[in-house]
């Protein structure tokens, strides 16, 4: 399919490793039916014709590609640090472009309005200047020195704090954020958003975390993150157009949107246009 463009040759999450069964999970990847299953105890993926697709089992999820990836799936070195709790949050299906789901994850300015009294609250709405770059050596979008005042930054946070963030886009539909870790100053909590593009306007979001929180119950950690994504979904399913506009003119960004601007440029430059709209309608 031509509209898959350059995104065809990349890796996508298609299921949680722990949930796999021999019977498998029938799902979609960029409009094509696939099955994710256990074959003699190992994760396997096949397409609608029965062809075996490449598989990587990493970060608690199964990854595959319809095309021929020319490089390994990205790594998250922090995930291997001892003492971190790795949290498979589960799946959240959203009727939106997979690219809009990632862009929303990169955005902090919506915290006071969409995650009111949790990740942000009025009148603490200002987004201070931060730094954005495309790191050519790893071909990733990075935003650093992001700061935001949060009433309850994490499940482990007591009271409001100014949270530091870093954002990283490491694949067309994957992003990792690093944020102040309330119980362990000097370290970063890691929260990743792995997005499975089912179609150009439908996706399944698999959040994943590597936290230094050893007090909270696992179910509470999961519920906290699921609550956040359900709040995001109410926005993501109501953006017009559904496809992410890559050409300027259709939407008006400000300085707070520098990460989103860089992400859109990076997508366009690479021809990552599945879920995008190129010409302003």
């Amino acid at each position: 399919m031509s509209d898959q463009g350059a995104m065809r040759d990349h890796w996508y999450p298609v299921g949680m490793t722990k949930q796999l069964t021999a019977g498998g999970r029938d799902t979609l990847l960029m409009g094509e039916p696939i099955r994710v299953y256990l074959d003699n105890g190992a994760p396997a993926v096949s397409d609608g014709t029965g062809r075996s697709l490449p598989v990587i089992d990493r970060f608690g999820h199964v990854w595959t590609s319809l095309g021929a990836p020319n490089r390994d799936l990205f790594t998250i070195p922090e995930a291997d640090q001892p003492g971190r709790r790795l949290v498979d949050v589960g799946v959240c299906r959203v009727r939106c472009s997979p690219l809009r789901a990632v862009e929303n994850f990169l955005d902090i300015a919506h915290f006071p309005f969409v995650h009111t009294d949790i990740l942000g609250s009025e009148p603490h709405t200002e987004v201070q200047r931060y730094e954005v770059e495309i790191r050519e050596d790893v071909d990733e979008v990075w935003a650093t020195k992001v700061k935001f005042y949060q009433p309850q930054a994490a499940k482990s946070a007591e009271g409001g704090i100014t949270t530091d963030y870093m954002y990283r886009v490491c694949a067309p539909t994957c992003s990792v954020l690093y944020k102040t870790c309330p119980p362990k100053p000097g370290e970063w909590d890691v929260i990743a958003l792995f997005v499975q593009p089912l179609t150009e306007t439908l996706c399944e979001v698999w959040p994943w975390m590597a936290l230094y929180d050893d007090a909270a119950e696992m179910t509470d950690l999961i519920h906290f993150q699921q609550m956040i994504f359900v709040q995001d979904r109410s926005v993501l399913e109501n953006q017009l157009p559904a496809l992410l506009p890559l050409d300027p003119g259709m939407e008006i960004p400000t300085r707070a949107d520098m990460t989103s601007i860089a992400y859109r440029r990076w997508l366009k430059r690479h021809g990552f246009t599945y879920g995008a709209q190129l010409v302003a309608a």
């Binding site: 955005d107 300015a109 919506h110 006071p112 309005f113 969409v114 009025e122 709405t125 109410s234 926005v235 109501n238 953006q239 017009l240 157009p241 506009p245 259709m250 939407e251 008006i252 960004p253 400000t254 707070a256």
Partner: peptide
């Protein structure tokens, strides 16, 4: 909303202004 295309009908009204629910 001209910013990120969010439906303004989901927004909130304060005084004589309509605000977008996404970024206010």
């Amino acid at each position: 909303c001209p910013h990120r295309g969010m439906r303004l009908s989901h927004g909130f009204v304060r005084g004589e202004r309509l605000s977008c629910i996404y970024h206010g």
